[in-house]
Structure formats: C-alpha cells, structure tokens
Design a protein around this nucleic acid. Structure first.
Lengths: 181, 181
DNA sequence: CACAGATATCTCGATGTCAAGATAATGGAC
DNA sequence: GTCCATTATCTTGACATCGAGATATCTGTG
C-alpha cells in the first residue's frame, strides 16, 4: 500500500519527488477504483500550490509591512501607469474579489494613506481610486521582493519548462478570464 | 498600448487566447521595464486559476449542500478508508489550515452529524474524527460531481498535455509537501 | 521517577470575505 | 423627454480563518 513510486520526467530524465497529490490520488484509486480521478492530478495541484504560495507571499510581504491583499490592490493601480488610478470595478476584475470586499479594502488603504478616492468626473455613480506616492513606493518595493522569492521557487524548472507550464496554464485560465465567468 | 498578441502553442500549433496574466505582464513590462517579471507568467496564473476553481467548486458543491471546506474534511476522511477516521493533526496536513480552524470545522461538521469525535485510545491528548454513514455518502456524491466539473475544465487540454502539466506542477509542489514547508 | 521539552488539541479575539440587498446614476427605446 | 433595465458602488450581517496562547499529555534523559 502506498508504494513509493518515482516519477520520471520524459524530457529531462530528471527524477521527481512524490507530493501530497500523488498520495491523495493513490488513496482515491484504492477507495474508489470505479472513479476516474485523473482530473485531480492537475487541479488539486493547482489549488494546493496556490495555498503554499499564499503563505510564502504573506511572509515575503511582511518584510515590507504589507498584506497580500494590499499588494494586490496597490500593484493593480501601479500597473495602470500614470496617473495610477482605476475604478473599483476595474479593480474587481483584476483581483477576483466581490464588490463588498473591494469597498472595504479601499477604505482601509485610504486610511493608511496608500490610496485616495476621487469622484469620477465622467460618471457620477463612479469613483476613481488613485495611488499616493507612498503607495507607489511600497508597491514597487514589495514587487521586487516577491519576484526574488518566486524566482527561487521556480528554480526547480528549466526556462523551457517554465515557458511550457505557462502556456498550459494559459489554456486553462483563458476561458475564465474571457468568458464572463 | 496593450497590443493584441496571439500565443501559439509550439507542440500542437493551436492558437490560444490571451488571458488576464498576459495583460498583467504586458503592463509590468511597460511600467517597470527594468524588472524581469517572467516568474509571474507561471505563478500568477496558478493563483488566479485557483481562485477561479474555488468559485466553480463552491457552485458545484452547493448542489449537494456542502461548502468547499466541508468537502475537504469529509473527503480526507473518506480517503483514509475504513473505519474512516483520522486525527485532527492528520487532517491539518492534508487541508493546509491552522489548528484553530480545524477544531472549528470539526465542531460544525459534528453538529451537522457528518462526523463524530472519539477519544484516541492510545493517546489521551488525542482525538479521532470519524465519518458517519451520512458523511460518507455526502462525500461520495460531491466527489462525483466535482470530477465531472473538473473534466469539463480540463477538456481544453489533450491527455498528453494534462499529463505534462501534472508533472510540471508536481516539481513545484513537491518541495513544499516534503520539506517541512 | 522526576523533569523538560515536544506534541496534540482547543480557546479566544481580531479580522477579512462573501452574499444579498440598498442606493444612485446612466443610457437606450419609444 | 420618460421609463426601465442595467451598471457602479456601498452597506450590512453572518461567518470562516488566522495567530497566539492555554492546557493536558507524552517521551526521553539522567
């Protein structure tokens, strides 16, 4: 039971360690041999890896005094370019949270002086959220730290493998990102 | 700005749609041309895809009257096989939550009659959480539904691509799962 | 056999998130 | 121009999670 199987990567002939999902899949095959659990090989790994990444990021950001959610909002604004402002709605689609959550986030960031809320001159329902100078600096610093950490995690893979992985993931994410989803 | 680039998968010559991460990376290259943001191509996609999957799962489970966190706990017990019992500590490592969270989850599942708490006969500090018959049935039903949904999501990829994707992800998750992480 | 450190679980307070609904403004049909 | 469906944002209440600390038990050392 739970035989130690070693997986061999066909392109590089590198031996890879077993992970929790291997154990999870083996357990399902034992308990529910009637089911095809192949989908879990991909999607359970995505979910678990995301959870690990969340933890690692929380740690990396704490050095810059930022929470992951703060980073997400500040960098979305930073990426928008001068004058670093977006509507709450645009921030929603980028961060995948609900509108109530975003209102709350903006409130807290505004209280910390990292963003400010401005009325949208062309739509009186609307609001524009703008990064302050300090917000911009904090975002820039945290981004550099994050990239260092992510590079270390990705060192497991060759450049070609990273590129292949990105392409495969894109095929899965594109439907969610483009269809209203 | 934001030129519509189309990505071509080198192995299948299939054209892939752009996704949010493509836009995100393009924006960073414009705003911070001094930084190498290649890591985001992989890891931002992992995080975003996980978020999309969370939403889709919440929807799929609601048909069976389960929350995602309930599914995670019940299926961990289900996979353990007869007599379907694990310690809270074992449940922690499988679900990647903190001990306080797990205590709370077990309380709520017990109140719903899906699990029961038993004293561990061999360690008086310890507890064993056991699946009830109803808990087992609910877990089995929800799993079948989840697999159907996941198969639909993965239909974007060929069998070979799914296998390749699983192998690449395993290389990234294995260090987290094996080193204390 | 006593003790110290490790381990297993639980308690508690703070906080972030979600879902649903409220409010306000827009824009196209007629 | 008026109306209605749509859009944009905010409000609210319920709830799940985390982190730090408390308690009880185990285990190895001397």
């Amino acid at each position: 039971m739970d035989v130690k199987r070693l997986h061999v990567d066909t392109t590089t002939t590198l031996i890879t360690m077993e992970d929790e999902v291997d154990r999870l899949v083996a357990a399902w095959r034992r308990e529910r041999p009637d089911l095809d659990v192949e989908p879990l090989e991909v999607l359970s790994r995505v979910s678990r890896l995301a959870r690990h990444l969340d933890r690692a990021r929380r740690l990396a950001f704490s050095e810059h005094g930022l929470e992951p959610w703060e980073f997400d909002v500040l960098t979305a604004l930073r990426r928008a370019g001068t004058p670093y402002q977006l509507s709450p709605g645009q921030l929603l689609t980028q961060t995948l949270v609900t509108s109530g959550t975003m209102t709350n986030r903006i409130d807290r960031l505004a209280k910390k002086g990292l963003v400010e809320r401005l009325p949208d001159p062309s739509d009186r329902r609307g609001v524009l959220v703008r990064l302050t100078d300090e917000g911009r600096d904090r975002a820039d610093q945290a981004l550099a730290g994050l990239l260092d950490q992510e590079r270390a995690i990705l060192a497991e893979l060759s450049r070609a493998q990273r590129s292949e992985l990105a392409a495969l993931l894109r095929q899965l994410t594109a439907p969610f990102d483009n269809i209203p989803g």
